[in-house]
């Protein structure tokens, strides 16, 4: 892939090896799932299993390519990412996912807003969560009441007749 000479003496890129393993894993899952399909007896045509097998083969080859690249240190240098903000944002999305159904759009989305703000260094949560809920409620009002979008309802939304 790159013109760089092979330097096997150096340690391979561990993360790249993990990626290669994941790609190979996906290819295996596609092959396994596709082999389970019952193909209807229709004449003279490429069936529904051909493309999945081609894609799985492609992923398999790319996995091998990634292993080679890992040994050649072909991946660009990675930045020193800070994972704490990522945890806050993912936490916010998970919290929204789990609260939307019973607490409604405003509360669930307000938590997401506050957690995201926290990830970017703005707090404290006891201030930003109410702020987020108010913002999300305004958004809900415009889209659900003004534009008839169906969004999950909770106790707050039910206050609006």
């Amino acid at each position: 892939m790159s013109a760089e000479p092979v330097r096997l003496a150096r340690r391979p890129d561990g993360a790249a090896l993990v990626i290669a393993a994941i790609l190979a894993g996906i290819a295996a899952v596609i092959v396994w799932q596709t082999s389970q399909m019952r193909v209807p007896p229709i004449q003279a045509r490429i069936g529904p299993t051909v493309f999945p097998y081609i894609i799985a083969a492609g992923l398999g080859l790319l996995s091998i390519g990634t292993v080679v690249s890992a040994f050649r240190r072909g991946f660009p240098p990675r930045e020193d990412d800070n994972f704490i903000p990522i945890a806050w944002i993912i936490g916010g999305l998970v919290a929204q996912l789990l609260t939307l159904g019973w607490a409604g759009f405003s509360i669930g989305t307000g938590i997401l807003f506050a957690f995201t703000a926290k990830a970017f260094g703005r707090g404290p949560l006891w201030q930003t969560i109410p702020l987020g809920v108010v913002f999300a409620f305004a958004v809900w009002f415009i889209f659900a009441k003004g534009l008839q979008l169906s969004l999950p309802m909770g106790p707050l939304e039910r206050l609006v007749p």
Binding site: F113, R122, S150, P152
Partner: peptide, 25 residues
């Protein structure tokens, strides 16, 4: 717009758009 509010808003609308297009629980 300060980043906390800007990205908070982006995620609010990103999830709103997704829910609006297919909101099935």
């Amino acid at each position: 717009i300060p980043r906390p509010w800007l990205y908070g808003g982006i995620l609010v609308f990103a999830t709103l758009g997704t829910l609006g297009a297919n909101g099935a629980m």
